[in-house]
């Protein structure tokens, strides 16, 4: 007897649905459990006061500020460098073997484990350039880590602008830079911004690269300069969940909640921006 193809189809589709649900469920579980156990910890005081009593009480203000500094530092370094590099690679570089090798190398760099970037940052910024464990060293390390992300997403956005846009502009006698500035960049902007936001959320959430380059276990004041160490949210969560005895559950989950909210809202912004971009694209 041959199996009924329609029954096979029903079974197959049900299995596909189950797989999808199995993947999606943990997301809700994680978000739910973090909100359920952490929400009661969130208060204005928790967000704006320093940790007290061996980090068992008080807030997480220095960690939030530290993470903001790191994100800012990362952007200052990686944003212009990444976007301009992408412009260079798509608009200026000649299409030869070297360029293709470089593009390949950059794509591959996006897949290198974050801990390897931490290793690199420790070796080169902290030790070799003698920056010590500092916001500067941490920002540079994170910057190098997100650079490939910014370059590849910006490059994709620039590549997606049709060639004809450039040709028309150039044929009207507009210079190369003016063409890029007025005919290419505006159309690629949402795509570039999406990449930048994703890079920010990556920089804000990573622990391994800042482990050896900036993170302080406890530093209750705001850093004075870029040569100071700083606390950072992901590392702070790691510390209070594995290193400090008898931390209240709600403080651990509260910290996880704040970290997750920051990174998730950044990602949500990126998703919205991209869907706007897709809607507007008319060519």
């Amino acid at each position: 007897m041959k199996p009924n193809p329609y029954r096979t189809e029903r079974i197959a589709f049900t299995l596909l649905l189950i797989s999808t649900v199995v993947i999606i469920l943990p997301v809700f579980f994680i978000v739910f459990i973090i909100i359920q156990k952490g929400f009661s910890a969130i208060s204005w005081e928790f967000l704006t006061s320093i940790p007290k009593m061996g980090m068992r009480e008080g807030g997480i203000f220095p960690a939030i500020v530290g993470t903001l500094y790191l994100v800012l530092g990362t952007l200052i370094f990686a944003l212009p460098l990444g976007v301009f590099s992408a412009i260079y690679l798509t608009e200026y570089a000649q299409d030869n073997l070297l360029t293709r090798l470089i593009k390949l190398a950059i794509i591959n760099l996006a897949g290198v484990p974050s801990v390897v970037y931490g290793l690199f940052g420790l070796g080169i910024f902290v030790i070799f350039l003698k920056l010590g464990a500092s916001i500067l060293a941490g920002s540079l390390t994170l910057g190098v880590m997100v650079l490939p992300i910014i370059i590849t997403t910006s490059k994709e956005a620039l590549d997606s602008v049709p060639k004809s846009f450039r040709e028309v502009s150039l044929s009207l006698g507009v210079s190369k830079w003016q063409t890029i500035r007025y005919s290419v960049l505006p159309h690629a902007l949402p795509g570039i911004l999406t990449g930048i936001i994703l890079a920010i959320s990556r920089a804000a959430g990573e622990t391994a690269p800042i482990l050896f380059t900036v993170a302080a276990f406890y530093l209750p004041k705001l850093p004075h300069s870029v040569f100071d160490q700083a606390m950072a949210l992901p590392y702070h969560l790691y510390v209070i969940s594995t290193q400090v005895p008898n931390v209240e559950v709600k403080i651990r989950y509260g910290t996880a909640l704040v970290l997750m909210m920051i990174v998730l809202s950044l990602n949500l912004a990126a998703i919205i921006l991209r869907s706007q971009f897709r809607k507007r694209k008319k060519w």
Partner: peptide
């Protein structure tokens, strides 16, 4: 060290002690 730093900084507000494990 964290407990010492916390107490010391309370008495000396101008000091800044970073503790790392």
């Amino acid at each position: 060290a964290q407990a010492w730093a916390e107490a010391f900084m309370r008495d000396h507000p101008q000091s800044l002690i970073a503790v790392t494990g």
